[in-house]
Design a protein around this nucleic acid. Structure first.
Lengths: 148, 148
DNA sequence: ATTTGTGCAAATCGTTTGCATCTGA
DNA sequence: TCAGATGCAAACGATTTGCACAAAT
């Protein structure tokens, strides 16, 4: 029932020196809180978090950090390409630790995002992009809700 | 440069008595401001508006209305099925006057939505919805930005 | 030592709500 | 008449920002 997915581009991070390196590669100094958040984000495999929810996770993990820093860090990470942002629900931004090409289920009841396996969806018959523009990304979001 | 599209299900509204009827059918009293907004929304063919931008339109059209009422009215219209809401950009909700099954281009530069012709896109190979859920809608958003 | 990050609180921005007043059927 | 609409201003919630302080290199 559980779908397990691995991606070579988002290599599984297991120890903290790899994390620090990942941050450095992205041009970010591996500070205490950045490393701590990176640990929460990238050690557990694919995640879809909101700032608020990562902030809660951090609290539970005894990490001392302010909500503003969580926001700033998430934004830095996604600018650096470590995360991808998704906005589905206008009230919240989700950050996806999986940056490769893939699409999502959105569980309307629980407001959660679930990855679809990479490469499985094919979108056909797309009209041409409007003149003077080029496609930067195609997002497919399948909204689902519990039956009954 | 301009793409014009017509759809039979969202019938073109041309006079105000039809508008009033459309509102009544939706269970909404055709009050001054509702009719005025409906006029802006449904007389011009397909539109994608934010509350703020419709509010501006209303001002230009000398309609006396408050921003809160624009919000309330847009929400009522979409609950009544007269509009469809789309959230792409987490900072703004778009209301689409075309309620049929269709998808969108999102022009990242100008933050505008453009309809794709109905029925042209085909999404294949969708994985099954997670257990216990059913698909309520599939959204395809093609983000484009100006070349160079 | 210098640059860069962090925490906090205040600011912002889109959106919603409470309530007194008005209006359409 | 009177339920239902409207306007306003205040409330809200997610996110950003300004600034003094702290930590990395």
């Amino acid at each position: 029932m559980t779908i397990v997915q691995f991606h070579m581009d988002d290599q599984q991070v297991v120890d903290n020196s790899q994390l620090a390196q990942k941050l450095r590669n992205a041009g970010l100094r591996p500070t205490r809180q950045r490393t701590a958040l990176a640990e929460l984000l990238f050690k557990k495999g694919d995640r879809h978090v909101s700032a608020e929810c990562l902030f809660e996770d951090a609290k539970k993990a005894q990490i001392v950090i302010s909500l503003a820093t969580v926001y700033n860090t998430l934004n830095q990470f996604s600018e650096a390409g470590l995360l991808r942002t998704i906005s589905i629900d206008s009230t919240r931004v989700y950050f996806d630790t999986k940056t490769g090409d893939h699409h999502h289920f959105f569980l309307e009841d629980s407001e959660q995002l679930v990855d679809m396996p990479e490469g499985c969806v094919r979108v056909e018959n797309l009209p041409d992009a409007p003149p003077g523009t080029e496609v930067s990304r195609v997002d497919v979001i399948v909204r689902v809700r519990s039956t009954k």
